[in-house]
Computed example of a mutant assay.
Amino acid sequence: MSGNIVDARLQLNKVVREISYSSTGVTVKTEDNSTYQADYVMVSASLGVLQSDLIQFKPQLPSWKILAIYQFDMAVYTKIFVKFPKKFWPEGEGREFFLYASTRRGYYGIWQEFEKQYTDANVLLVTVTDEESRRIEQQPDSQTKAEIMEVVRSMFPDEDVPDATDILVPRWWSDSNN
């Protein structure tokens, strides 16, 4: 066995935009304008996708299903990677994570270094959630980088903290193509 799925009914890497259903069957339309028909369909989209209305259901789902979907709070979670020309943070056993306490809830609070996994990468990861994630996804990377530099320099006031050379800000919440 090769492990490859050979059933032609399974479609991978298709972005579903509409599911129309009735007692006679289901029609699924994808972003690339493909259409698929079946007797049944299994929807395995995440709660976040269902709450975003990226998939239109025709007719609309029953009220009890919509209520169930929106009873859960889907948190937005963003991991920002920041590369530096050199290390300036503490290293060694038990020093993989750093915490930053701000008066703003969730403002660049959880940091991680990767020296054990990626020696000499000089990369820090900072995690933000919910409102901070939404705010950061809407601003230019240059502003995020400036905010991060201010935080890092306040975390390590006795160190010569160089400017970050690169930053990666995934925009999973605001960019459906990610």
Score class of each variant (00 low, 15 high):
residue 52 S to T: 08
residue 52 S to I: 07
residue 53 D to Y: 02
residue 53 D to S: 14
residue 53 D to E: 13
residue 53 D to A: 06
residue 54 L to T: 14
residue 54 L to N: 14
residue 55 I to D: 02
residue 55 I to V: 15
residue 56 Q to D: 10
residue 57 F to I: 03
residue 58 K to R: 12
residue 58 K to Q: 11
residue 58 K to A: 08
residue 58 K to C: 04
residue 58 K to Y: 07
residue 59 P to Q: 03
residue 60 Q to T: 10
residue 60 Q to L: 06
residue 63 S to N: 06
residue 66 I to C: 00
residue 66 I to E: 03
residue 66 I to Y: 00
residue 66 I to T: 15
residue 67 L to E: 15
residue 67 L to I: 08
residue 69 I to A: 01
residue 69 I to E: 03
residue 69 I to R: 02
residue 70 Y to A: 06
residue 70 Y to V: 02
residue 70 Y to I: 02
residue 70 Y to R: 14
residue 70 Y to D: 08
residue 70 Y to Q: 10
residue 71 Q to I: 02
residue 71 Q to G: 11
residue 71 Q to V: 00
residue 71 Q to W: 08
residue 72 F to Q: 14
residue 73 D to T: 15
residue 73 D to M: 07
residue 74 M to D: 12
residue 74 M to L: 02
residue 74 M to I: 09
residue 75 A to P: 10
residue 77 Y to L: 04
residue 77 Y to F: 11
residue 77 Y to G: 00
residue 78 T to S: 06
residue 78 T to Q: 02
residue 79 K to S: 07
residue 79 K to M: 04
residue 79 K to Q: 13
residue 79 K to N: 14
residue 80 I to Q: 01
residue 80 I to W: 07
residue 80 I to R: 08
residue 81 F to V: 04
residue 83 K to H: 06
residue 84 F to L: 00
residue 84 F to Y: 15
residue 84 F to K: 04
residue 86 K to S: 14
residue 86 K to G: 03
residue 88 F to A: 12
residue 88 F to I: 05
residue 89 W to Q: 04
residue 90 P to I: 04
residue 90 P to G: 06
residue 90 P to T: 03
residue 92 G to A: 06
residue 92 G to L: 01
residue 93 E to G: 03
residue 94 G to D: 10
residue 96 E to C: 01
residue 97 F to K: 13
residue 97 F to S: 12
residue 98 F to W: 09
residue 100 Y to Q: 09
residue 100 Y to G: 02
residue 100 Y to E: 08
residue 101 A to P: 01
residue 101 A to N: 11
residue 101 A to S: 13
residue 102 S to R: 04
residue 102 S to E: 02
residue 103 T to A: 07
residue 105 R to E: 13
residue 105 R to N: 12
residue 107 Y to H: 13
residue 107 Y to T: 08
residue 108 Y to W: 10
residue 109 G to I: 01
residue 109 G to F: 11
residue 110 I to S: 15
residue 110 I to D: 11
residue 110 I to M: 03
residue 111 W to P: 10
residue 111 W to D: 04
residue 111 W to H: 02
residue 113 E to S: 11
residue 113 E to C: 08
residue 114 F to H: 14
residue 114 F to P: 07
residue 115 E to K: 11
residue 116 K to L: 05
residue 116 K to I: 10
residue 117 Q to T: 06
residue 118 Y to E: 13
residue 118 Y to H: 13
residue 119 T to H: 10
residue 121 A to Q: 06
residue 122 N to D: 09
residue 123 V to F: 05
residue 126 V to I: 13
residue 127 T to F: 02
residue 128 V to D: 01
residue 128 V to C: 06
residue 129 T to C: 04
residue 129 T to P: 00
residue 129 T to S: 09
residue 130 D to P: 04
residue 130 D to V: 01
residue 130 D to L: 00
residue 130 D to T: 10
residue 131 E to I: 01
residue 131 E to K: 14
residue 132 E to P: 07
residue 133 S to L: 05
residue 133 S to C: 05
residue 133 S to F: 04
residue 134 R to Y: 05
residue 136 I to N: 05
residue 137 E to G: 10
residue 137 E to V: 02
residue 140 P to W: 00
residue 141 D to G: 02
residue 142 S to E: 14
residue 142 S to C: 06
residue 142 S to R: 13
residue 143 Q to T: 13
residue 144 T to Q: 00
residue 145 K to T: 05
residue 145 K to Q: 15
residue 146 A to P: 06
residue 146 A to I: 02
residue 146 A to Y: 05
residue 147 E to H: 11
residue 148 I to M: 09
residue 149 M to I: 08
residue 149 M to E: 14
residue 149 M to F: 11
